[in-house]
């Protein structure tokens, strides 16, 4: 492996490998993550994709990938990664393909699959210590079908299946911890708005073997209700308010890669999005806003203790 090469923002790639012309929405935070990651992983890759927004990345006869891709189904994209990894190993072992034809296997799913239907397949892939990378683009709902709530939906968010003024009554599932509890080689959270942190994590995981998993928060103009030009701003606010902690798990330990000393109030993040507008209009719902803030504060007070 190449080793760490990206230390500064200036060293991020400025020519891009993922093809243009995809049917993702304008301002898609998930596509932003994917293209940043693809710049580093490159074309010697095969993606196994689950049903979700990104099923449509490859629509006959168009594909944005320089490398390869296999569409599977919503529940079993990690199982396809297993099949391909094993098949490539067999082909290499039996010398039916040259070593240069090997590929990195990457599973690409949305939160609907990662947090829900595909969780069993992911868990099992980790049990089997599958050598693969998993990227979940998390837009906090079933985006491809019109943003119904999923188990990644945050508390109080309006979705197509939680339309009342209270929004989604549940709380976002802690997939990072569930994944990390399997003790895989690597787990991290990323976001497109923090490309240096993302690039360094992708470089780090490339030096490891075994299951390496990423959850990328994907601000979604369509599903969350904001102007597409705000994708990066909202992403950055997710980090600055502490609602999306950037962290990584390896060697049995979780470390926060970005600790914001003075976290901005979460309402700065919430009020830019239609899905939380009911917390501010027609009148401010102080109780709910305070509740969301308190959960973030509680998270960080624990997290900083644990890190140090």
């Amino acid at each position: 492996m190449a080793g760490k090469t990206i230390r500064r923002l200036q060293e991020l790639p400025s020519t891009h490998l993922l093809g243009t012309g995809t049917p993702m929405c304008a301002g898609c935070g998930g596509l932003e993550i994917l293209h940043e990651i693809y710049d580093i992983l490159g074309p010697k890759t095969v993606f196994t994709n689950a049903a979700g927004c990104m099923s449509l990345l490859s629509v006959y006869p168009y594909t944005p990938f320089r490398g390869s891709w296999l569409y599977t189904a919503m529940a079993s994209a990690p199982a396809a990664a297993q099949g391909i990894r094993d098949a490539l190993d067999i082909l290499l072992e039996k010398k039916r393909i040259p070593p240069g034809d090997d590929l990195q296997v990457i599973t690409l799913t949305g939160d609907g699959s990662a947090y829900g239907m595909g969780l069993s397949a992911t868990s099992a892939a980790m049990d089997r210590n599958l050598d693969f990378i998993y990227l979940c683009y998390d837009n906090e709902g079933y985006g491809n079908t019109g943003q119904q709530y999923s188990s990644a939906t945050p508390h109080a968010a309006l979705t197509a299946t939680s339309r009342t003024s209270h929004g989604y009554p549940g709380y976002k599932k802690d997939l990072f911890s569930i994944w990390a509890a399997h003790r895989p080689a690597y787990v991290a959270t990323v976001i497109g708005a923090e490309p240096l942190d993302l690039a360094q994590k992708v470089e780090a995981l490339q030096e490891l073997q075994g299951p390496r998993l990423l959850i990328g928060l994907a601000p979604c103009p369509t599903g969350w209700g904001f102007d597409p030009s705000l994708t990066v701003k909202i992403g950055r606010l997710a980090v600055e308010t502490g609602i999306w902690p950037l962290k990584e798990y390896r060697d049995d330990r979780t470390v926060h890669t970005r600790i914001v000393r003075h976290r901005k109030p979460v309402e700065e993040y919430l009020q830019l999005q239609d899905r939380f507008r009911h917390l501010f209009e027609p009148e401010r719902n102080n109780r709910e806003i305070a509740l969301i803030q308190a959960r973030i504060d509680q998270y960080w007070s624990k997290a900083i203790d644990a890190d140090t």
């Binding site: 012309g21 049917p23 594909t63 944005p64």
Partner: peptide
């Protein structure tokens, strides 16, 4: 699709 990068035609 037996090629890469064809999406640029869209």
């Amino acid at each position: 699709i037996h090629a890469g990068l064809t999406s640029v035609e869209v």
